[in-house]
Amino acid sequence: MFPRPIQKAPQPAQWTYTVALPLALLLWLLPLLGVAVTSIRPASDLAQGNYFGVPSTIALGNYIEIFLNTPMAKYIRNSFIVTIPTVFGAVALSCLCGFALAVYNFRSNLLVFFMFVAGNFVPFQILMVPVRDLTVQTGLYNTYLGLILFHVAFQTGFCTLFMRNFIKALPYELIESARVEGVSEWKIFRHIVLPLMRPAIAALSVLVFTFIWNEYFWATVLTQGADVQPVTAGLFSLNGQWIAQWHLVSAGSIVAALPPVLMFFLMQRHFIAGLTLGATKG
């Protein structure tokens, strides 16, 4: 283990570590904590210049206010409507693609694989004008479906990379012996490989959920107005309306951040397994 376990260090070093750990965390999360406290601060505190002291009351009213007076609930709903089908779509398509690229040896295999990988890295702006035009032409501008279709397609690149590497690591003999038995390729996928992919599916679902929930650029390019816009884009327009009403901006930010945060804490192991794929090879 590196560094040397602190338990083996001399006593003063251990004490220093015990103090430094919470202190470092406090510093690290200082901006976030500030916003969290501001979100429960009554507007009157801000008016009187009480920005950092203890809030005079705990104003949960800020949260009620953003739900009553703004389309926040609608934005949140939109985010779910866009995010959940995207997770299903991208994970399903990448299971299929990953299987194809991991199991079959065909000539353009690596070419297709690296096309997925490379597509994943391109700047969004090089896609923006054609994708927006395509979405407008097909009547999908400012619809959930328009946003979902693009997200599914783009996330399939990253997810395929992940799935392919995962299936490659499975024992190939499983597939070979099934073939000897005369099991069809589809049934090999459906009944032998897919059940083994559960951890990968879980990891990707959590990751894609977080990515899409937090996505902002395409939300502004492909949608407008509170009817369809997800919460990231919604928060941007609310921020424009709430000039300097930081108690509301803060409460809105916290609300928008909550679903992925919950997802992360509930599915932490899968989340990190997905994110650190490839970081341990060799």
């Binding site: 194809a100 297709v112 896609l127 004008v129 279709l149 397609a153 399939t156 690149g157």
Partner: peptide
């Protein structure tokens, strides 16, 4: 065995070509 990979790839690849690869050229 020859057709299977392309059938498995078809839906994902098609989406990816339409929404990622073609737009690069088009841009």
């Amino acid at each position: 065995r020859k057709l299977a990979p392309w059938l498995f790839l078809a839906p994902g690849l098609l989406m990816f070509l339409i929404y990622v690869i073609w737009p690069i050229g088009n841009s």
